[in-house]
């Protein structure tokens, strides 16, 4: 049974999340990929104000296909997360508490998740049509010039995801593989 979660995330919420838990996310999340992450970290380095409030925020690693007329967004599945690994610890230090993507994270990111009490959710890669149905509103927040890679703000209802890395060091990828591996 999937747990309903209301964003933004808090220490109270993340302490109850364990690797393997299925969740339905509700509320506001942000969208950014490699190029947006690069710009966010560059802004932090320069001491500039960011276009979003990172406290308790969740970032979905995604670049949508264009929306057909009358729809908030096009296909909207996760991109591979390791490309954000070099930026994520910095954003967690500034308050980021949730990341949504697909694929394994580095040890440095996993360590930062424990230190800053943040979680990494997996969304089903390639299931962009299904996931788009949970997105009710989408706006470009900044970096419009990046096109599909712009920073976006989403309003979601029952966005389906699975906890991959929790704040206790749990890792669904390692646990799942160990359980089903045959010699």
């Amino acid at each position: 049974m999937a747990k309903k979660i209301t964003l933004p995330l808090t220490d109270e919420i993340v302490k109850d999340l364990k690797s393997g838990d299925e969740v339905l996310l509700n509320g506001v999340m942000y969208v950014g990929r490699d190029a947006a992450h690069k710009k966010l970290v560059a802004s932090l380095d320069k001491g500039e104000k960011l276009p979003l409030d990172l406290k308790g925020a969740t970032i979905f690693f995604m670049g949508p296909s264009p929306a057909r007329p009358g729809r908030p967004i096009g296909s909207a599945g996760p991109t591979t997360s390791y490309r954000m690994d070099s930026y994520s610890p910095r954003l967690m230090a500034e308050g980021l508490k949730g990341m949504i993507g697909k694929g394994m994270r580095s040890q440095a990111v996993k360590d930062a998740m424990k230190e800053y009490k943040a979680v990494y959710f997996g969304a089903i890669g390639g299931a962009g049509a299904l996931i788009s149905k949970s997105i009710k509103k989408a706006d470009v927040l900044a970096y419009d010039e990046l096109g599909a890679e712009a920073l976006r703000r989403l309003e979601v209802e029952d966005f389906p995801a699975t906890v991959v890395n929790d704040i206790y060091g749990g890792d669904l990828y390692e646990e799942g593989k160990a359980k089903y591996k045959k010699d």
Partner: peptide, 19 residues
């Protein structure tokens, strides 16, 4: 969910995957 995604993609003309 992958199979459900395939149904939605065809019926509603949303690409199977955003990439």
């Amino acid at each position: 969910k992958i199979l459900e995604n395939a149904d939605i993609a065809g019926a509603e003309q949303i690409p199977l995957c955003q990439d």
